[in-house]
Design a binder for these strands. Structure first.
Lengths: 193, 193
DNA sequence: GCAAACGTAGCACAGTCGTGCTAACGTCAC
DNA sequence: GTGACGTTAGCACGACTGTGCTACGTTTGC
C-alpha cells in the first residue's frame, strides 16, 4: 500500500477550501482548479477525492450542515430548558465567523441548486432540520411551563423558524447586528410566556 | 438615424431573460451568450445594451428591486392603516410567481456579491429599504393606535424585518406555505396590540 | 442621392472550464 | 527483492467564457 492518508480529514480540508473561496470570491469562482490551489493540492489529487465538481459542491454543503448539527447536539445534555432552547437556536445563527461561513455557503449553494439536484435535496433537509429544532425548542419550553400551555405549536414553530432564519440572514449581512439578533430572539421567546 | 428602438424596454426584456435563467439553471448558467439566446438576441446586440457582464448582472438585480418598489408605492394611497401596512409588507414577500422570481434573483445575486462590488451595494440598499418599510408600517400602526403606544420601535422593527425576510425565504422555498406565511405575519402584527 | 448615425452581426483571441486518460511515484505485504 | 496498488502528477481535449474589434445594414436629416 502507498503512504497512509486520512481520507476523511483530507475531504474536510478540501471542503473548507471551498468555503473560503465561496466566502471570498463567490460560488462563481469555485472550480476544481481554484479549490485545488486553495487546498494546496494538485488537480489530480483533488480529483482523487472528488472526481466531479458536483460531488465537491454537494460535500461542501453537507459539511456545513454536519458541523452545525454537531454543535447543536453538543447542547443536548443541558438541563435548564430555557438555556438549552436558546443554545440550540444560537447554533444555527451566524453569531461568530465559523457559523457565518456556514451560513454564506449554505445560501450560495442553495442559489445554485436549480442546476444541481443534490444541492436542492441537501438544502431541503437543512430547512426541515432547523424547523425540527424550532419545534423541539418550543416543546421543551412548553413542557417546562415557560411558554403558554395553550400555544398552537404548529403556528408558533412557523413563526419562530422564520424569525430565526431572518435574524440569521441579518447577522450574516452585518456582524455588528449579532447582539441585537440575540436580544430579538430572547424577546420573542419571552413574549410566548 | 437607424430604426428606432425602445432601449429601456429592451433592457428590461434582457433583465427578465437573466431572471429566467437564474430561476431555471442557477446563476452559474448566466453568460452573455445564454442570456442573448434567452432574449432572442445576438451577442452583438446584447452587448450594445450591456457591454460587460457586471453591468448585466447589476441591472438584473436593480430591475427586481425597482419592480418591487413600484408595487409597494402603489399602496401609498390606501387609507386604512392596517391594510396599508399589510399590503406593503406583502409586496416584498414571494406570494405569487412574479415576486418569487424577484426573491430568487435577489438571493442568487447576493451570493455572487463578493465578486461584484456593485451587487453588494444593491443588496445593501434593498435590505435598508425593506427595513425602512417595516419601520414605516409600525409607525403608521402606532400612530393609528393599532399597536401598543409604548412599543420600542427600533427593536420591533428589527424583529418584524427578520420575520418578513424569514417568511419570505420560506414562501420562496415552498409556494404551498404562502397562506401560512400571510397568517404568521398577521398574527405577529396582532400580537403587538 | 448622400452622408452620418445607430444598431446588428459576428470574427478572433486568450483564458478557463470539467473531465478522460496515462505515467510515475511511494509504500506495504510477501 | 519483487510485485501490487493506493496515490500523485499532469497532459490533452473540446467546449465555453468575456471582451476587443471590425464590417455590414438600415434608417433618418438634409
Amino acid at each position: 500500500m502507498p503512504r497512509t492518508i486520512d481520507h476523511e480529514e483530507r475531504r474536510q480540508r478540501i471542503g473548507e477550501a471551498v468555503w473560503r473561496i465561496v466566502l471570498r470570491e463567490g460560488v462563481g469562482a469555485v472550480s476544481l482548479r481554484t479549490v485545488a490551489a486553495e487546498a494546496e493540492l494538485v488537480l489530480g489529487s483533488l480529483r482523487h477525492s472528488f472526481p466531479t465538481k458536483d460531488a465537491l459542491l454537494a460535500f461542501a454543503m453537507e459539511l456545513a450542515h454536519e458541523r452545525a448539527a454537531a454543535r447543536v447536539g453538543r447542547h443536548a445534555g443541558v438541563r435548564d430548558p430555557w438555556r438549552r432552547a436558546r443554545a440550540a437556536l444560537h447554533e444555527v445563527m451566524p453569531l461568530d465567523d465559523e457559523r457565518r461561513v456556514e451560513m454564506r455557503v449554505h445560501l450560495a449553494l442553495m442559489a445554485e441548486s436549480p442546476a444541481h439536484e443534490r444541492l436542492a435535496e441537501l438544502a431541503g433537509a437543512a430547512h426541515d432540520a432547523i424547523r425540527g429544532l424550532c419545534l423541539e425548542a418550543l416543546t421543551v419550553l412548553r413542557d417546562a411551563g415557560l411558554v403558554r400551555a395553550d400555544l398552537d405549536l404548529r403556528r408558533a414553530t412557523t413563526t419562530l423558524h422564520a424569525l430565526v432564519d431572518g435574524l440569521a440572514l441579518h447577522a450574516m449581512r452585518d456582524p455588528r447586528q449579532r447582539r441585537a439578533v440575540v436580544r430579538a430572539l430572547d424577546e420573542h421567546l419571552s413574549s410566548l410566556r
